[in-house]
Design a protein around this nucleic acid. Sequence first.
DNA 1: CGAGTCGTTGAACGGAATCAATCGTCGTGG
DNA 2: CCACGACGATTGATTCCGTTCAACGACTCG
Lengths: 200, 200
Amino acid sequence: MKRFDDLFENLHEAKNRHLKAGENLFQRGDPAVWIFFVVRGRIKLVRDTVEGNSVILHVAVSGSSFAEAALFSDRYHCTAVADIPTEVLLYPKSEVLKSLRGKPDETEGLVEIMAKQIQNLRSTLELRNIRSADERIFQYLLLQVDGKSNELNIETTYKDLAYELGLAHETLYRALGSLEKKGKIERDGRRIKIDLKYVI
Amino acid sequence: MKRFDDLFENLHEAKNRHLKAGENLFQRGDPAVWIFFVVRGRIKLVRDTVEGNSVILHVAVSGSSFAEAALFSDRYHCTAVADIPTEVLLYPKSEVLKSLRGKPDETEGLVEIMAKQIQNLRSTLELRNIRSADERIFQYLLLQVDGKSNELNIETTYKDLAYELGLAHETLYRALGSLEKKGKIERDGRRIKIDLKYVI
DNA sequence: CGAGTCGTTGAACGGAATCAATCGTCGTGG
DNA sequence: CCACGACGATTGATTCCGTTCAACGACTCG
């Protein structure tokens, strides 16, 4: 098992649903009966505040599952709304739990990917403590290649990457340019090569 | 099972070790044989860079386990160093895995707490996208009480809290003062009461 | 072909970081 | 037992850099 959603593979009960931009998938307090997978588009998990604005708890992009915590909760703790036109798959929570219980060896695989995800989230979080945009991006790149190579492809858009890094997209462009000028990286479209002397 | 480290309860093989500030626990590349639990103190998981400075991947505080990902990896991917005088428990990875495999029902509990941890990390990460210090702290407080109450106790020091929120500690003090002046919160030492109208 | 979005660069602003200083507390060791 | 050092909590002044607003070309998609 490589990803959380591989658990869903054997589940043929999946429904699918298309959402327009701004459309609600579920609301805080609704009974938690489904686990979701984003086929394409983007789902925002938000919590509304009294002042009218809302706080984003998570942004699920295409290819990722979300609301997994609903497995162990009676109701959804947040509201899910499509950010752009989005297609999602719906898996019944009860089926997922049954499948989980039937296969202890698969469950161990699940623990493995979750441990890695936690590790990854923790380091992404620590990245945010780097104030300098240049340095934050550079360390992000180093984390991505992880000493295995000195090249990587940016799969998402630069705008999404900026969001993930907690930077304005303008800042990201400028910082990439600055890193290139310093000679720490080379860029060719979405392909980024890191100067070998920084790759351990 | 409430926490990851409850898995360790039945393991009597745990050694314990005391580290002075600055002392290394393990280094990047060392064979991964132990999983750890911080009894008291603070352990930083870092990656050293060519420029001499190091990037923090995670900070494990007392009462938490760390290096869980080592369960599924041959070698440690980062270096662990005590930030202040620290006591840790060492659990042999092989024992932990054995215990994991022996009890499929406990493993499901593990999946549950990991799912919650992931959910929590994701929302902490999204909190960082709130630029305004006042608003970031306020949303953090709301997240902590989660509608269950309108009061909470800050367990850690304010300095550590500032770090968790990605703010300079001076900024945290000022923002707390500002929130209090606005009447959104009331403070009495480490006890914080949130204005009822903001608690959903 | 026009609307929308991405990628990119310029200019100005604002708010958080940083530097600095003070006070209180806690532990420690001589 | 007290002096000293270390650190947390707090407030003030200044700096700096990332955000924000703005504008433009390129590209895609309906």
